[in-house]
Nucleic acid binder design. Structure first.
Lengths: 140, 140
DNA sequence: ATATACCCGACTAAAATAGTCAAGTTTTTG
DNA sequence: CAAAAACTTGACTATTTTAGTCGGGTATAT
Protein backbone atom coordinates (compact mmCIF):
# COMPACT_ATOMS: atom_id res chain seq x y z
CA UNK A 1 0.00 0.00 0.00
CA UNK A 2 1.95 2.91 -1.28
CA UNK A 3 1.73 6.46 -2.38
CA UNK A 4 3.29 7.14 -5.76
CA UNK A 5 6.39 9.27 -6.10
CA UNK A 6 4.57 12.05 -7.92
CA UNK A 7 2.47 12.68 -4.86
CA UNK A 8 5.37 12.39 -2.52
CA UNK A 9 7.54 14.71 -4.56
CA UNK A 10 4.69 17.17 -4.89
CA UNK A 11 4.30 17.40 -1.15
CA UNK A 12 8.07 17.64 -0.68
CA UNK A 13 8.39 20.34 -3.31
CA UNK A 14 5.55 22.40 -1.93
CA UNK A 15 6.93 22.06 1.58
CA UNK A 16 10.26 23.23 0.19
CA UNK A 17 8.56 26.25 -1.33
CA UNK A 18 6.86 27.03 1.93
CA UNK A 19 10.22 27.02 3.66
CA UNK A 20 12.32 28.79 1.06
CA UNK A 21 9.96 31.20 -0.62
CA UNK A 22 9.96 34.80 0.66
CA UNK A 23 7.57 36.56 -1.65
CA UNK A 24 9.55 35.84 -4.80
CA UNK A 25 8.91 32.87 -7.01
CA UNK A 26 10.79 29.65 -6.38
CA UNK A 27 12.34 28.05 -9.45
CA UNK A 28 12.09 24.34 -10.10
CA UNK A 29 15.83 24.32 -10.55
CA UNK A 30 16.31 25.32 -6.93
CA UNK A 31 13.80 22.80 -5.68
CA UNK A 32 15.44 20.16 -7.80
CA UNK A 33 18.83 20.87 -6.30
CA UNK A 34 17.65 21.09 -2.71
CA UNK A 35 15.36 18.10 -2.75
CA UNK A 36 17.27 15.90 -5.16
CA UNK A 37 14.35 15.48 -7.53
CA UNK A 38 14.86 15.43 -11.29
CA UNK A 39 14.06 18.79 -12.87
CA UNK A 40 12.24 17.15 -15.76
CA UNK A 41 10.08 15.21 -13.37
CA UNK A 42 9.32 18.30 -11.32
CA UNK A 43 8.15 20.06 -14.45
CA UNK A 44 5.63 17.32 -15.05
CA UNK A 45 4.41 17.52 -11.49
CA UNK A 46 4.10 21.28 -11.42
CA UNK A 47 2.21 21.27 -14.65
CA UNK A 48 -0.53 19.46 -12.82
CA UNK A 49 -0.27 21.54 -9.71
CA UNK A 50 -0.72 24.59 -11.84
CA UNK A 51 -3.69 23.20 -13.72
CA UNK A 52 -5.34 22.50 -10.40
CA UNK A 53 -4.63 25.94 -9.09
CA UNK A 54 -2.28 24.90 -6.30
CA UNK A 55 0.51 27.09 -7.64
CA UNK A 56 0.81 29.87 -10.14
CA UNK A 57 3.75 30.42 -12.41
CA UNK A 58 5.98 33.35 -13.27
CA UNK A 59 7.75 32.97 -16.58
CA UNK A 60 11.11 34.22 -17.73
CA UNK A 61 14.28 34.94 -15.88
CA UNK A 62 13.86 34.90 -12.12
CA UNK A 63 10.60 33.15 -12.73
CA UNK A 64 9.31 30.16 -10.88
CA UNK A 65 6.25 29.14 -8.94
CA UNK A 66 4.26 30.68 -6.13
CA UNK A 67 1.81 29.02 -3.78
CA UNK A 68 -1.73 30.18 -4.48
CA UNK A 69 -2.85 29.66 -0.90
CA UNK A 70 -0.85 30.08 2.26
CA UNK A 71 0.58 26.87 3.73
CA UNK A 72 -1.89 27.23 6.58
CA UNK A 73 -4.78 26.99 4.16
CA UNK A 74 -3.46 24.39 1.76
CA UNK A 75 -4.84 20.96 2.50
CA UNK A 76 -2.77 17.90 1.65
CA UNK A 77 -5.84 16.37 0.10
CA UNK A 78 -5.85 19.20 -2.44
CA UNK A 79 -2.33 18.32 -3.48
CA UNK A 80 -3.08 14.63 -3.86
CA UNK A 81 -6.17 15.14 -5.90
CA UNK A 82 -4.26 17.45 -8.20
CA UNK A 83 -2.12 14.44 -9.02
CA UNK A 84 -5.01 12.03 -9.43
CA UNK A 85 -3.83 10.19 -6.38
CA UNK A 86 -7.22 8.96 -5.44
CA UNK A 87 -7.62 7.14 -2.19
CA UNK A 88 -9.73 4.29 -3.41
CA UNK A 89 -8.19 1.38 -1.66
CA UNK A 90 -9.90 -1.21 -3.77
CA UNK A 91 -10.99 -1.27 -7.37
CA UNK A 92 -14.47 -2.59 -6.85
CA UNK A 93 -17.39 -0.28 -6.46
CA UNK A 94 -20.81 -1.28 -5.22
CA UNK A 95 -22.44 -0.62 -8.53
CA UNK A 96 -19.65 -1.60 -10.88
CA UNK A 97 -19.61 -4.66 -13.09
CA UNK A 98 -15.98 -5.36 -12.47
CA UNK A 99 -14.92 -7.98 -9.97
CA UNK A 100 -17.85 -7.49 -7.66
CA UNK A 101 -21.18 -6.99 -9.40
CA UNK A 102 -22.92 -5.68 -6.31
CA UNK A 103 -24.44 -8.89 -5.06
CA UNK A 104 -24.31 -8.83 -1.34
CA UNK A 105 -22.80 -12.27 -0.95
CA UNK A 106 -20.12 -11.51 -3.43
CA UNK A 107 -18.56 -8.58 -1.74
CA UNK A 108 -19.51 -8.79 1.89
CA UNK A 109 -16.60 -6.58 2.78
CA UNK A 110 -17.75 -3.49 0.96
CA UNK A 111 -18.63 -1.41 3.95
CA UNK A 112 -15.25 -2.10 5.38
CA UNK A 113 -13.39 -0.77 2.34
CA UNK A 114 -15.55 2.29 2.34
CA UNK A 115 -14.70 2.95 5.96
CA UNK A 116 -11.03 2.55 5.17
CA UNK A 117 -11.18 5.11 2.41
CA UNK A 118 -12.92 7.56 4.67
CA UNK A 119 -10.39 6.96 7.40
CA UNK A 120 -7.46 7.74 5.12
CA UNK A 121 -9.10 10.64 3.34
CA UNK A 122 -9.93 12.35 6.57
CA UNK A 123 -6.26 12.27 7.46
CA UNK A 124 -5.35 14.16 4.32
CA UNK A 125 -8.30 16.49 4.68
CA UNK A 126 -7.26 17.57 8.12
CA UNK A 127 -3.59 18.15 7.42
CA UNK A 128 -2.34 21.43 6.09
CA UNK A 129 0.99 22.04 4.43
CA UNK A 130 2.01 24.14 7.39
CA UNK A 131 1.56 21.16 9.69
CA UNK A 132 4.43 19.39 7.99
CA UNK A 133 6.89 22.10 8.78
CA UNK A 134 6.25 22.34 12.47
CA UNK A 135 8.41 19.61 13.82
CA UNK A 136 11.06 19.31 11.19
CA UNK A 137 14.61 19.07 12.36
CA UNK A 138 17.21 21.78 11.98
CA UNK A 139 17.70 22.74 8.39
CA UNK A 140 20.90 23.68 6.63
CA UNK B 1 -3.30 4.49 -3.29
CA UNK B 2 -4.60 1.01 -3.49
CA UNK B 3 -4.67 -2.29 -1.78
CA UNK B 4 -3.71 -5.22 -3.97
CA UNK B 5 -6.22 -7.86 -4.92
CA UNK B 6 -4.47 -10.55 -2.94
CA UNK B 7 -5.21 -8.70 0.25
CA UNK B 8 -8.72 -7.88 -0.75
CA UNK B 9 -9.51 -11.42 -1.78
CA UNK B 10 -7.95 -12.74 1.40
CA UNK B 11 -10.23 -10.61 3.52
CA UNK B 12 -13.22 -11.51 1.39
CA UNK B 13 -12.44 -15.21 1.54
CA UNK B 14 -11.92 -15.23 5.28
CA UNK B 15 -15.13 -13.28 5.77
CA UNK B 16 -16.83 -15.86 3.61
CA UNK B 17 -15.45 -18.61 5.80
CA UNK B 18 -16.66 -16.86 8.91
CA UNK B 19 -20.15 -16.71 7.46
CA UNK B 20 -20.35 -20.14 5.90
CA UNK B 21 -18.24 -22.36 8.11
CA UNK B 22 -20.08 -24.33 10.80
CA UNK B 23 -17.34 -26.36 12.37
CA UNK B 24 -16.40 -28.22 9.21
CA UNK B 25 -13.69 -27.11 6.86
CA UNK B 26 -14.57 -24.78 4.00
CA UNK B 27 -13.17 -25.79 0.61
CA UNK B 28 -11.56 -23.27 -1.69
CA UNK B 29 -13.86 -24.51 -4.40
CA UNK B 30 -16.89 -23.28 -2.46
CA UNK B 31 -15.30 -19.95 -1.68
CA UNK B 32 -14.31 -19.60 -5.31
CA UNK B 33 -17.89 -20.17 -6.45
CA UNK B 34 -19.49 -17.92 -3.88
CA UNK B 35 -17.06 -15.04 -4.15
CA UNK B 36 -16.21 -15.32 -7.82
CA UNK B 37 -12.48 -15.58 -7.25
CA UNK B 38 -10.32 -17.87 -9.36
CA UNK B 39 -9.63 -21.14 -7.58
CA UNK B 40 -6.00 -21.11 -8.65
CA UNK B 41 -5.55 -17.66 -7.25
CA UNK B 42 -7.20 -18.60 -3.98
CA UNK B 43 -4.78 -21.47 -3.64
CA UNK B 44 -1.90 -19.08 -3.85
CA UNK B 45 -3.46 -16.81 -1.27
CA UNK B 46 -4.30 -19.57 1.18
CA UNK B 47 -0.81 -20.93 0.93
CA UNK B 48 0.35 -17.73 2.55
CA UNK B 49 -2.47 -17.60 5.04
CA UNK B 50 -1.54 -21.07 6.14
CA UNK B 51 2.16 -20.32 6.43
CA UNK B 52 1.28 -17.40 8.63
CA UNK B 53 -1.02 -19.43 10.79
CA UNK B 54 -4.21 -17.63 9.92
CA UNK B 55 -5.87 -20.82 8.73
CA UNK B 56 -5.13 -24.50 8.99
CA UNK B 57 -5.83 -27.06 6.31
CA UNK B 58 -7.62 -30.37 6.21
CA UNK B 59 -6.58 -32.52 3.29
CA UNK B 60 -8.51 -35.04 1.27
CA UNK B 61 -12.18 -35.31 0.43
CA UNK B 62 -14.34 -32.96 2.47
CA UNK B 63 -11.19 -31.12 3.33
CA UNK B 64 -10.67 -27.41 3.21
CA UNK B 65 -9.56 -24.68 5.53
CA UNK B 66 -10.45 -23.68 9.05
CA UNK B 67 -9.85 -20.38 10.79
CA UNK B 68 -7.23 -20.73 13.50
CA UNK B 69 -8.68 -17.93 15.59
CA UNK B 70 -12.31 -16.93 15.96
CA UNK B 71 -13.43 -13.99 13.81
CA UNK B 72 -13.71 -11.93 16.98
CA UNK B 73 -10.01 -12.41 17.64
CA UNK B 74 -8.64 -12.18 14.13
CA UNK B 75 -7.26 -8.75 13.36
CA UNK B 76 -7.31 -7.48 9.82
CA UNK B 77 -3.71 -6.41 10.23
CA UNK B 78 -2.78 -10.06 10.73
CA UNK B 79 -4.31 -10.90 7.39
CA UNK B 80 -2.54 -8.13 5.55
CA UNK B 81 0.85 -8.90 6.97
CA UNK B 82 0.41 -12.53 5.98
CA UNK B 83 0.24 -11.26 2.41
CA UNK B 84 3.17 -8.89 2.75
CA UNK B 85 0.82 -6.02 2.27
CA UNK B 86 2.88 -3.61 4.25
CA UNK B 87 1.50 -0.20 4.92
CA UNK B 88 4.56 1.81 4.06
CA UNK B 89 3.12 4.67 2.14
CA UNK B 90 6.43 5.86 0.81
CA UNK B 91 9.60 4.07 -0.14
CA UNK B 92 12.03 6.35 1.60
CA UNK B 93 13.20 5.61 5.08
CA UNK B 94 14.98 8.03 7.35
CA UNK B 95 18.20 6.06 7.28
CA UNK B 96 18.06 4.69 3.77
CA UNK B 97 20.33 5.73 0.95
CA UNK B 98 17.60 5.67 -1.59
CA UNK B 99 15.94 8.87 -2.70
CA UNK B 100 16.24 10.55 0.64
CA UNK B 101 19.56 10.00 2.40
CA UNK B 102 18.37 11.29 5.74
CA UNK B 103 19.44 14.90 5.39
CA UNK B 104 16.82 17.02 7.04
CA UNK B 105 16.46 19.46 4.16
CA UNK B 106 16.06 16.67 1.66
CA UNK B 107 13.07 15.01 3.12
CA UNK B 108 11.36 17.53 5.33
CA UNK B 109 8.18 15.58 5.12
CA UNK B 110 9.35 12.46 6.86
CA UNK B 111 7.41 12.86 10.06
CA UNK B 112 4.28 13.32 8.06
CA UNK B 113 4.65 10.03 6.20
CA UNK B 114 5.35 8.27 9.44
CA UNK B 115 2.16 9.66 10.92
CA UNK B 116 0.23 8.53 7.89
CA UNK B 117 1.50 4.99 8.22
CA UNK B 118 0.55 4.92 11.86
CA UNK B 119 -2.87 6.30 11.08
CA UNK B 120 -3.60 3.57 8.55
CA UNK B 121 -2.05 0.76 10.51
CA UNK B 122 -4.08 1.56 13.57
CA UNK B 123 -7.21 1.18 11.50
CA UNK B 124 -6.26 -2.36 10.56
CA UNK B 125 -5.07 -3.15 14.05
CA UNK B 126 -8.37 -2.22 15.58
CA UNK B 127 -10.62 -4.05 13.14
CA UNK B 128 -11.49 -7.67 13.66
CA UNK B 129 -12.86 -10.00 11.03
CA UNK B 130 -16.12 -10.15 12.96
CA UNK B 131 -16.54 -6.39 12.56
CA UNK B 132 -16.92 -6.81 8.81
CA UNK B 133 -19.89 -9.06 9.15
CA UNK B 134 -21.98 -6.89 11.41
CA UNK B 135 -23.62 -4.58 8.98
CA UNK B 136 -23.63 -6.63 5.83
CA UNK B 137 -26.80 -6.68 3.85
CA UNK B 138 -29.12 -9.66 3.51
CA UNK B 139 -27.35 -12.65 2.10
CA UNK B 140 -28.69 -15.29 -0.27
C1' DA C 1 19.51 39.28 -28.17
C1' DT C 2 19.85 35.80 -25.28
C1' DA C 3 19.71 33.16 -21.28
C1' DT C 4 16.59 31.51 -17.97
C1' DA C 5 12.70 29.25 -16.76
C1' DC C 6 8.07 27.67 -17.64
C1' DC C 7 4.99 24.63 -21.09
C1' DC C 8 3.39 20.25 -22.87
C1' DG C 9 2.63 15.97 -25.28
C1' DA C 10 4.75 11.73 -26.40
C1' DC C 11 7.62 8.18 -25.31
C1' DT C 12 10.07 4.17 -22.84
C1' DA C 13 12.21 1.09 -19.47
C1' DA C 14 11.51 -1.20 -15.42
C1' DA C 15 8.84 -2.97 -11.79
C1' DA C 16 4.65 -4.66 -9.77
C1' DT C 17 0.43 -7.11 -10.23
C1' DA C 18 -2.84 -10.51 -11.34
C1' DG C 19 -3.48 -14.68 -12.51
C1' DT C 20 -2.27 -19.38 -14.77
C1' DC C 21 0.12 -23.82 -15.26
C1' DA C 22 2.08 -28.09 -14.21
C1' DA C 23 3.00 -31.53 -11.44
C1' DG C 24 2.53 -33.11 -7.40
C1' DT C 25 0.68 -35.25 -2.21
C1' DT C 26 -2.82 -36.62 1.11
C1' DT C 27 -7.04 -38.54 2.65
C1' DT C 28 -11.74 -40.18 2.47
C1' DT C 29 -15.11 -43.16 0.73
C1' DG C 30 -17.35 -46.55 -2.26
C1' DC D 1 -7.79 -50.52 -3.16
C1' DA D 2 -8.92 -47.26 -6.58
C1' DA D 3 -10.36 -42.94 -7.60
C1' DA D 4 -11.81 -38.45 -6.71
C1' DA D 5 -11.63 -34.38 -3.94
C1' DA D 6 -8.88 -31.11 -2.19
C1' DC D 7 -4.63 -29.19 -0.54
C1' DT D 8 0.83 -28.01 -1.99
C1' DT D 9 4.25 -25.60 -4.35
C1' DG D 10 7.26 -23.28 -7.44
C1' DA D 11 7.65 -21.33 -11.81
C1' DC D 12 5.90 -18.79 -15.40
C1' DT D 13 3.60 -14.95 -18.18
C1' DA D 14 0.77 -11.17 -19.76
C1' DT D 15 -0.83 -6.83 -18.50
C1' DT D 16 -0.73 -2.64 -16.21
C1' DT D 17 1.31 0.91 -13.67
C1' DT D 18 5.01 3.73 -12.44
C1' DA D 19 8.85 6.58 -12.83
C1' DG D 20 11.20 9.24 -15.38
C1' DT D 21 13.13 11.13 -20.02
C1' DC D 22 13.03 13.61 -24.45
C1' DG D 23 12.26 17.09 -27.68
C1' DG D 24 10.68 20.92 -29.09
C1' DG D 25 8.36 24.64 -27.83
C1' DT D 26 6.94 29.94 -25.46
C1' DA D 27 7.46 34.00 -22.40
C1' DT D 28 10.17 37.58 -20.19
C1' DA D 29 13.85 40.21 -17.61
C1' DT D 30 18.08 42.22 -18.35
Amino acid sequence: MKLNTKSRYAVMALADMAVFSSDNAVSLRDISLRQGISLLYLEQIFLRLKKNNIVKSVRGINGGYILVKSPKELKISDILSALDQKVKTIGCKKDSKKSCNGKSTKCITHNFWDELDIHINSFFENKKLSDLLKNREARI
